[in-house]
Structure formats: structure tokens, C-alpha cells
Amino acid sequence: MQIFVKTLTGKTITLEVEPSDTIENVKAKIQDKEGIPPDQQRLIFAGKQLEDGRTLSDYNIQKDSTLHLVLR
């Protein structure tokens, strides 16, 4: 499925993911596309910070959802 990741600069990254993918996995995909190390990434969805060990389906993230990427 496709999800979107919006950065603070207003750029939107499109990712191909599975509901069973972990947040860690998603961060690795963002690193592949953007070169941002996962340890600098914070992903936010519906006002919640997403934890590495959980999956997209744990957070009820569905296709065409938009996550927000904050760098630390």
C-alpha cells in the first residue's frame, strides 16, 4: 500500500509499505529515499509519536495515510 510522509519543509515522500511493516522498517525506507538516518527520525501520526517496534497496523495506519516526519 502507499503512504505519504510529510517533512517539515513541506516536502511529501511517497512510500510503498505493508500494514505489517514496523515503524523501524518505514524509517529505513525513508533513509533509502532521503538519506536521513533512522535515529534522527521521529514519525508522528494522529498526534502520536510512533514507536520503532510497533507496526503500521498497530496504529491503524491505512493506505494513503500521511505521517509527519520530525528530525531530532
Results as ranks from 00 to 15, higher is better:
T55L: 10
K63R: 10
A46M: 02
F45L: 07
M1S: 10
G35E: 07
R54G: 08
I23D: 01
P37G: 09
D64G: 04
T9A: 09
S57Q: 14
I36V: 07
V5H: 00
I23W: 01
V70T: 07
D64M: 04
L71R: 06
D64N: 12
D39P: 15
L56Q: 00
L43I: 12
D58L: 05
T14P: 13
I3H: 00
D52F: 09
L69M: 04
T7I: 04
Q31T: 13
T12Y: 10
P37M: 15
G10L: 05
Q2Y: 10
I30G: 01
D39I: 10
N25R: 09
Q49V: 05
T66Y: 02
T22N: 09
I44M: 06
Q41N: 06
D21V: 04
D64T: 15
L56R: 00
S20V: 10
L8F: 10
I23L: 11
D21E: 05
D21S: 03
R42K: 13
V70W: 03
T9P: 09
K27N: 02
I61F: 03
F4I: 11
I36H: 12
R72A: 14
V5Y: 02
Q62H: 15
E16Y: 15
Q2L: 13
G35W: 05
Q49W: 09
K63D: 03
M1Q: 07
R54I: 07
E51W: 05
F4K: 06
E18G: 12
L50A: 02
V26I: 15
L71T: 10
V17W: 02
P19S: 12
N25P: 02
S20W: 15
R72S: 12
T22F: 07
K48P: 01
Q40L: 02
G53L: 08
N60M: 09
K33V: 04
T14Q: 12
D58T: 07
S57I: 15
D32W: 12
T14W: 12
Q49R: 08
F45G: 03
R72Q: 06
T66I: 04
T14I: 07
I61Y: 01
L67S: 01
P19V: 04
G47N: 13
I3L: 06
R42H: 15
